[in-house]
Amino acid sequence: MKKIPLWIWQILLLVALFAAWHILTVPGLAPNFFFDNNDKAAFFFGEPLRIFTAIWIWFVDGEIYPHLWVTLQETVLAFVIGTLCGLGVGLWLGLAPLASAIADPYIKAANAMPRVILAPIFMVWFGLGIWSKVALGVTLVFFIVFFNVYQGVKEVSPVVLNNARMLGASKAQLLRYVYLPSATSWVFSSLHTSVGMAFVGAVVGEYLGSAKGVGYLIHQAEGTFDINTVFAGILVLTVFALLLDYVVTFAENRLLRWRPGQSETERI
């Protein structure tokens, strides 16, 4: 028997899930075994066909594009600003033992705090536009990158460092040619998590108060108990997050070529 490729199984699973969803929710298709009313399942869980119709209309009418664009902007801005701040502060504290010793309890406290509760404060500070969402995303991204860079700086191989010093690197050159590349590799290892966090910041921020964005669409639909549109928004966000992750993987493969991969090492 010929082996069936993995992706066929994956697609079959997806189809099966949607089929089950369809059968269990469309009124009258399956006997009621939990709800006392035919329409209740559809009310709580939506109907796949209506959800797809809603998505189809969004994309055909072009209604979704400005919202997606806003969410994308927020995500990218939060990611870039958070990463740069995390990189800068991580390098600084990694190289200044005294400063890091003083800051240590505060960093731990700031990291332990559930930062989503900052969203209302950011809304007061930055308004309902994109910047309050960017600020929320930044607080989420910053700590991931910061801890990675901090660790990365501490773990730069002392031999590589001494070698660079013997080759004549000045302090500034050590920072630029040894610490920074070493720390950057740690940033990239946390890339998936930090892009994901930037996205979470953007959507949660939109959900809590905004005038644009996919999170706003979901919030609006929820206000009118339009569960199908809520699910449509969730599906669009999921696909969007998958695409972002794909872009990150692509960037990672390009930029971390120097890293030994599992199968990449060749025998010469």
Binding site: V160, N163, M166, S170, Y177, P181, S182, W258
Partner: peptide
Amino acid sequence: AGYMFQAESLMPWRSARDNVMAGLQF
């Protein structure tokens, strides 16, 4: 003086050529 270390001393993020030219770059 030049120093040759016992442990791995090359910068892993640089190609062989970029490693060799590091000192000139500095």
